[in-house]
């Protein structure tokens, strides 16, 4: 299997506060990987390092052999926060994606907006937080890339709409592509994963295939998560 992402001993701290500590793993082609952990466990830090938005203290990350800053054409990234200028409409955002990404599929994006009941001409600043997140997801999932990195794609979305989001991720991601999805809402998405990486205070607690975990423990990933992070079970810092 071809490696798409290689993370080798990456460490990044914020002054005295730990971000991530000597993390290593690789993601192969076609994998859907859940990056799980409570808030502050290092999920977003790790994702920013993969995107080249943070620089590591030590260690190395490559995406198909390239440094993160050189690999942006290969990755479609949904950050934790919305990132389009608030003066933009979706039409304008389409133009940006069309301009910069040769792999952007506008037809796909339009049909996703339709699924989400969003208007192309509506300015972003008049949209609710949930609507903005959906709009961003439509853009990100409409690219045809080897790697999708989604940071909390369901953070601000109400439970009723989460299923729609999941379906559209499944429907639109390019089969054969790798998908890295961080979340703390595990029960909603655990059906999606091939593999889960549990982060805890900057360390990797567990990195396993989900079906193996289910077969071995007879428990859901959500339950395993709860037990792992129950008070008293946590690794001492």
């Amino acid at each position: 299997m071809t490696k798409v992402v290689e993370v080798k001993g990456i460490t990044r701290n914020y002054g005295a506060r730990r971000g991530v500590d000597t993390i290593s793993f690789s993601l192969v082609e076609g994998e859907i990987v859940g990056l799980l952990g409570p808030n502050g466990s290092g999920k977003t830090t790790l994702i920013k390092l993969i995107m080249g938005l943070l620089q590591p203290d030590s260690g190395e990350i490559t995406i198909r052999g390239l440094a993160p800053m050189q690999a942006h054409a290969l990755i479609s990234y949904l950050p934790e926060n919305t990132y389009l200028g608030d003066w933009m409409t979706m039409e304008e955002a389409f133009r940006v994606f069309e301009d910069f990404y040769a792999d952007f599929d506008q037809v796909k994006a339009l049909s996703m907006l339709d699924d989400f009941d969003l208007e192309v001409r509506q300015p972003l600043k008049t949209m609710s937080k949930g609507m903005q997140e959906k709009a961003h997801l439509a853009l990100v999932m409409s690219r045809n890339v080897p790697l999708y990195v989604l940071d909390e794609p369901m953070g601000g979305i109400d439970p009723a709409a989460r299923q729609t989001i999941l379906e559209s991720i499944l429907q639109n991601y390019n089969p054969g592509s790798t998908l890295l999805l961080s979340t703390h809402l595990i029960s909603d998405v655990e059906m999606l994963f091939d593999r889960v990486i549990f982060l805890d205070q900057g360390y990797v607690r567990l990195d396993r295939q989900v079906e193996e975990l289910r077969a071995e423990t007879g428990k859901s990933i959500d339950n395993i998560f709860r037990e792992l992070y129950a008070p008293g079970m946590r690794r001492k810092a």
């Binding site: 942006h72 926060n81 200028g85």
Partner: peptide, 19 residues
């Protein structure tokens, strides 16, 4: 500042452009 160091930076700095 806004385009390179606020939330918009997450778009700007992940565009396939060099520094």
């Amino acid at each position: 500042y806004r385009s390179l160091y606020t939330n918009q930076a997450y778009l700007t700095h992940t565009l396939p452009a060099t520094p």
